[in-house]
Amino acid sequence: MKADAQLEKIFEAFKQRTITRVFYVACGGSSALMYPSKYFLDRESSQITSEIFSSNEFIHRNPQSLNENSLVILCSHKGKTPETTEAAKFAKSKGALVVSLMYVEHAPLADESDFIVNYSWISAGNMEPMPEIMNYAILYKLAFGLLYVKEENKKYEKLVTSLNSLSTVFEKVMAQNEDVINAYAEQYKDEKIMYTMASGANYGMAYSFAICILMEMQWMHSHAIHAGEFFHGPFEILDKDVPFILLMGLDETRPLEERALTFLKQYGNKLVVVDAQNFDLTGIDDEVKGYLAPLVNNVVLRMFALALSKARNHPLETRRYMFKVPY
């Protein structure tokens, strides 16, 4: 597989460099992809820290810790996002090792990067499960591979084996949830607003669904709420008429999501819960289940996005401004 060959070259580069800090840099949905991998680095590494930056702010903020000991990982689906391309150029000017993900082979972002990794593009409306080559999986391989090289973290091999089992897991999850997802789409098709909530490795999925699916692709008002922040202001918006989507994972922050669930059930009424604990995860190693659960939850979100777009008669490809007017 092409991506694996590209990753092997990057792992060799890891061996030749001192890396003390990882910067994940992207915009929008590409940025949301990076939250699970950052969660892994935060949990597992004793020597390497990581941060997530929006591409343009990365340049303007100009972190003083960005230097020749930094790894900068960027993502842009077509490799044409101007802010992300400039961020790659900026990172190289600071001496950082620059790795970029995209689904095209040649793009401006590739020209400004030391290495690229290509993934297969899966649109929001495509339900064919290909987890071993999805952008999430590649980001995981980069993070797990970095710690395998630098700290002898043995979870890399368990990750690869588990990724190979995900297609079967996805197929079972899709079959299990098809009817309930279609029912949810009918129930919520006329809502004007819908909040999403999660914590830990799951948070990026909630963020992506809010800004990319509900706001961008369905023109619905939305906001992603961190489950740990819910009780520090946002819970005041809850009543029986306000719909929430709650993602529940298997990582160490699950108690935050469980606390939010208790409150949502007590004071709310319109609630969609996507809980990885309810899915058959046979084939995924126990030591990486918490890290990979967001990918499984995301399959259900993709199903919901497609069903909602059909129920609302609002195709996911419809745009008002994006790619249509100067911005």
Rank of each mutant, 00 (worst) to 15 (best):
N153D: 14
F90A: 03
T262I: 11
E8I: 01
A32V: 05
S93W: 09
N118F: 00
L74R: 00
I73H: 04
Y195V: 14
M205P: 03
A183I: 09
D190Q: 15
Y203M: 08
Y35R: 13
K240C: 00
M127L: 15
K189F: 09
F40S: 10
Q277L: 11
F90K: 06
A224E: 09
G204R: 01
R254I: 10
Y267L: 05
V272Q: 07
K92M: 10
A137C: 01
A87Y: 10
H226I: 07
E57P: 01
M197K: 02
I181F: 02
M34C: 12
R21W: 05
Y140I: 02
M194R: 12
D190I: 06
T253G: 04
K265F: 01
V242G: 01
N135M: 03
D286W: 09
M197H: 00
T81I: 03
L97T: 05
W121H: 10
A13P: 11
S50R: 07
S167W: 03
P294K: 13
F90D: 02
P36N: 12
I59G: 05
S76I: 01
Y188C: 06
V325N: 10
N269C: 00
H226Y: 12
S222N: 05
Q266M: 10
K38H: 13
V72E: 03
D280R: 00
V169M: 02
D286M: 09
A26C: 09
L109T: 03
V160D: 09
V274A: 04
V299H: 00
Q47Y: 11
F14Y: 15
D286K: 15
N69P: 10
P255I: 05
L66Q: 09
A183G: 12
M215E: 15
S162Y: 06
D42W: 13
V22S: 08
S55N: 09
E252R: 13
N164Y: 04
H77D: 04
E51V: 14
C75N: 11
A210E: 11
E157I: 15
V288N: 07
L163Q: 02
Q6W: 01
P315G: 02
L246Q: 09
L256V: 04
R43H: 15
N118R: 15
G29W: 05
L66G: 05
C212P: 05
F279T: 01
A96Y: 06
P108S: 04
Y291I: 10
E257M: 12
L292C: 01
I245W: 10
N164T: 10
P326S: 07
V72T: 14
M197W: 03
D275W: 08
G228S: 08
K150M: 07
L261Q: 13
K2D: 14
S100Q: 00
R259G: 00
G283T: 04
Y119K: 02
L308Q: 15
V160P: 00
Q218L: 14
M248W: 01
R254L: 13
S31D: 15
Q218A: 05
A201I: 06
M1K: 06
D280N: 12
T84C: 04
N56F: 12
M102P: 00
F144A: 11
I116A: 04
I48E: 09
N269P: 00
L146M: 11
L306P: 11
I211M: 12
T84M: 03
L214H: 07
I52W: 12
F170E: 02
Q16A: 14
N164M: 08
L238K: 07
P255C: 06
T49D: 13
N182G: 08
M1Q: 06
F90G: 02
S93C: 02
G204C: 07
Y184Q: 11
